[in-house]
């Protein structure tokens, strides 16, 4: 029997789900390999009681999200977290610092009461165990297809632990630090083929901090040629506020 798959989203921009629909050449092949049981973005129907694989996009920002995830974990044999929001907290976590009441006041005006269900934005694995991670903002389609194929075949998948600098060398990009511009490729998890630097833009760290990253050395490089420690901290804040890396 084809595995029954549900696609869910928490606090997100739906961009990673859009990336799934953007696998046009492969979309119908994927759908032939699974039984798509729930996908609010693409299909009418209710969330079923039984399924095998849950694909989760988005960060946890409310108690409802956490309840939903625990329910999902109790039912799904495999949970796949997709995108920066779900894997590292990502952009939603940028609103995690300081007072939530102040943020409500900035957006909605004074006197609006913060709902009791709100939580500091956090990745999916802060609430439940996650079996597979597909990092990135947004996810890379080929990486998603690789992970999904491995899930369907029951194989282990491993996202690279190394930083992105190696990918940049392979792509023969000129290093941004050579011209005094900071780049988070120094500490960011490899696997995207250094997409942004190859298009002339420094890495923004959307794939999260690599386990192999040497943050102390990165700090030295930033101080020497990348705008200093504040530039590194500020750049890391965009996607990695929820990560426990202190610079």
């Amino acid at each position: 029997m084809a595995p029954r798959v549900v696609v869910l989203s928490l606090a997100s921009d739906f961009g990673c789900q859009v990336q799934i629909t953007n696998t046009e050449d492969h979309l119908l092949t994927i759908l032939g390999l699974i039984e798509l049981s729930y996908w609010q973005l693409a299909s009418s129907g209710h969330m079923p009681d039984e399924y095998d694989v849950a694909i989760v996009e988005g960060a946890v920002t409310t108690d409802e999200h956490a309840h939903l995830l625990r329910d999902v974990r109790g039912k799904a044999a495999v949970v796949i977290a997709i995108g920066a929001c779900a894997t590292i907290g990502g952009i939603p976590a940028l609103a995690g610092s300081g007072s939530l009441a102040d943020r409500y006041a900035t957006v909605y005006g004074d006197g609006v009461i913060v709902p009791a269900v709100r939580r500091a934005p956090a990745p999916v694995d802060s609430v439940i165990h996650v079996d597979y991670h597909v990092p990135g903002c947004p996810i890379d389609q080929s990486e998603f297809l690789r992970v999904l194929s491995r899930v369907l075949l029951g194989l282990v998948d491993h996202t690279p632990d190394m930083t992105m600098c190696g990918s940049c060398k392979i792509a023969e990009n000129v290093c941004f630090f050579d011209s005094g511009v900071g780049c988070l490729g120094l500490v960011t998890r490899a696997g995207c083929g250094a997409k942004c630097p190859s298009l002339g833009r420094p890495c923004t760290g959307c794939r999260g901090i690599a386990p192999d990253a040497n943050v102390v050395s990165a700090l030295e490089v930033f101080e020497r040629a990348g705008g200093g420690a504040d530039a590194l901290r500020s750049a890391l804040d965009v996607y990695n506020t929820a990560s426990e890396v202190h610079v």
Binding site: T61, L94, A95, T106, R118, P121
Partner: peptide, 9 residues
């Protein structure tokens, strides 16, 4: 849909 507070971010 919960607010993500982009204007404050």
């Amino acid at each position: 849909e919960p607010a993500r507070f982009f204007e404050s971010m």
